[in-house]
Design a protein around this nucleic acid. Structure first.
Lengths: 193, 193
DNA sequence: GTACGATATTGACAAATGTCATCGTTCCAA
DNA sequence: TTGGAACGATGACATTTGTCAATATCGTAC
C-alpha cells in the first residue's frame, strides 16, 4: 500500500529514507477509499487533508454563480489531490474535489505534514512538487491566454495523453476553459487535419 | 539597500535572522540596476538569477508564432521576478523579462540560493512564497477559464489596484488574455455601470 | 432485458471577442 | 519647442466560441 508513495518520494528527492523515517511516514498517513462520485472535499468546508492518489482519479472544480461547474484540476495515480489554499490557511474552500473513479488515497493532515517535514527527503520532495506544480500552472496559464481552442487541446493531448482515456470529454473541455460542443468540433478538426 | 529585502524575509518567516545570517545574505545577493525597456531575461537564454525588486516594475512575456507578445507576469517592489522553470532547470527560457520602469533588483544565483537555504528563515520564506505563488496562479487560472472579460478585469482591479497605475492598458489586457480594444470597451462598461 | 441517464455529435443561431483602420491625445526625446 | 512614437478610444466588420435543441449511442442499474 505504501510502495507507490515511497517510490514517489525516492524519485522526487536526493536524500534517502531511514527505517525510522519510513516508520514515521507510515504513522502519519491515513488510508482513505472513495467510491466514484464521492466527495473528497466539499465547497464551504476546510480541506483537512492533502491526498496522494494510489489508485483512481479525482477532479477539482468550482461552481460559478450560474451553477456551472469549472474544472480546475484533474489528478490520477501518483498525483496529489488537495486545495492548497484551504488546506494551508484552514479556510473554507471554494472548490469541490470528487472521485471520478473508485479511488484509494493516502492522506496527510497539516499537523502530520509538519511532523514529517523534519525528514529531509520529504522536505525535498515537497519542494520539488511545489516547483513543478507552479511551473505547470504557469504553462497552463500561458496556453490559456495565448492559444485558441484547438491548440490548447493539442497541448493537453501532448502533456497528458492518459487523461483523455480517463475523463469524459465535457470534463476535459471544462478543464480547457471551452464548451463541450466546441471541444467536440475541435476534435473533429484535429482528426481530419 | 537591503532593508526592503530583510523586512520582506521577516514578514514571510517565523524564524529570526542572526547577524551571521544577515552577513551571509548580504554576500549572496548582487545589486542590479535596469533602465526602462532593458531586459532582465531574454528568450532563449538561461535565467541566471531570481530577482527581488527593490524599486521599479517588470513584465514577463512570451512571443507567439505570429510575433504577438503575451504577458505572463507583472511584478513591482517587494515581488520576485524570475522564470522559475529556466532558473531551476538551467534551461533556455521561452520568456522575456523586461524592466517597465527604471528598476533596482537584488539578484540571487541558483548556487547562492542553495547556500542561503541553510538559513531557516530563508527556507520558510521561499516555502511561503511558493505556496502563495501557486495559490495565486491557480486563482488566476480559475478566473481565466470561468469569467468573461469584464469580470476578469474587475477581479484584477480588486487584487492589484496599484498595477493599473503602473502599467499601460494594453499590457494589462494581454495579462488578462484579451485584446486591448476589448479591455478599452470593457472599462467603459465598468465606469458606466 | 429494458429503461434511463450520461455522453457525444451536429445544426442553427446568438453573443463575445478579435481584427483592422482611423483618430485624438499625451509624452518624451532630439 | 516640436515631431514622432506610444497610448487609448471608437467604428465596422470578421471570427471564434457559446447556447440551445435535437438526436444517436452507450453503458448500467433495476
Amino acid at each position: 500500500m505504501f510502495e507507490t508513495l515511497l517510490t514517489y518520494i525516492k524519485r522526487h528527492s536526493e536524500s534517502s529514507l531511514s527505517d525510522e523515517d519510513i516508520m514515521l511516514i507510515k504513522k502519519s498517513f491515513l488510508f482513505k477509499s472513495l467510491k466514484k462520485k464521492e466527495l473528497f472535499l466539499e465547497q464551504g468546508k476546510v480541506c483537512q487533508y492533502t491526498g496522494f492518489i494510489i489508485k483512481g482519479a479525482t477532479r477539482q472544480f468550482s461552481i460559478d454563480a450560474s451553477g456551472i461547474e469549472h474544472v480546475i484540476q484533474l489528478s490520477i495515480e501518483n498525483w496529489w489531490s488537495v486545495d492548497r489554499e484551504s488546506f494551508l490557511m484552514k479556510a473554507p474552500s471554494v472548490y469541490n474535489i470528487e472521485a471520478w473513479e473508485d479511488t484509494d488515497l493516502l492522506v496527510l493532515s497539516l499537523e502530520n505534514l509538519e511532523r514529517i517535514h523534519s525528514i529531509p527527503a520529504i522536505k525535498e520532495m515537497f519542494w520539488q512538487m511545489n516547483q513543478s506544480n507552479f511551473i505547470a500552472s504557469q504553462k497552463r496559464l500561458n496556453y490559456s491566454i495565448s492559444l485558441p481552442a484547438l491548440e490548447r487541446y493539442e497541448e493537453f493531448l501532448k502533456h497528458y495523453p492518459e487523461f483523455v482515456q480517463r475523463f469524459p470529454q465535457h470534463t476535459i473541455a471544462s478543464y480547457l476553459g471551452i464548451s463541450k460542443e466546441t471541444l467536440s468540433r475541435v476534435r473533429n478538426k484535429y482528426v481530419h487535419k
